[in-house]
Amino acid sequence: MNLPDILSSIDKAFPEAVLTRTDFRGETTLELRPEHLRPVLALCHSKLAFDYLLDISSLDHLGDDPRFELVYELSSMQHHLHLRIRAKVSEEHLSAPTVSDLWPTADWHEREIYDMMGIRFDGHPDLRRILMWEGFPHFPLRKDFPLEGKSSDVPDVAFTAPAPLEGGPFVTVASGAGVHRREPRARRPE
């Protein structure tokens, strides 16, 4: 099995599913309609030999509609293939179907996305925060969450407070002029 066969099988099974297809440096990306995300991923898993889910990540396109996006990196160990699948998630309906029943590794990836971005996964067996604690009221990887953080308090569990940025964030510059020049400082974008 090769990638063109796989793409045509997806097209045959779900003619409406693929919005755009991008080929860049030998990597193929499909953008799917959100409602076709789960059926296409299930097809990839069961029929198209994508036995390995490398990663799920999420993006926040603040200001765009729909605002969020999920990216699934599929891999086939059997046929040495890679396929990237993307789907948008709107801010009004902030959820996506789980794939943790297809690839068990998706369990923690989805928990991380829920923790950091606030996207819920329908049907997930154990959708708790994974890095922050239960009760933390924010989603820190969103674009509108400030770098220095926000105040919060869950008694006896944890608290947070904004960090002093002193005009920061502190960034360094690429320069051969020595350590003094490269020293991380508060620099305004030019």
């Binding site: 820190p140 926000k150 502190f170």
Partner: peptide, 11 residues
């Protein structure tokens, strides 16, 4: 807090 001027680290 060192270099971690961040939401996750006690200062």
């Amino acid at each position: 807090g060192g270099m971690y001027r961040s939401y996750a680290v006690l200062q």
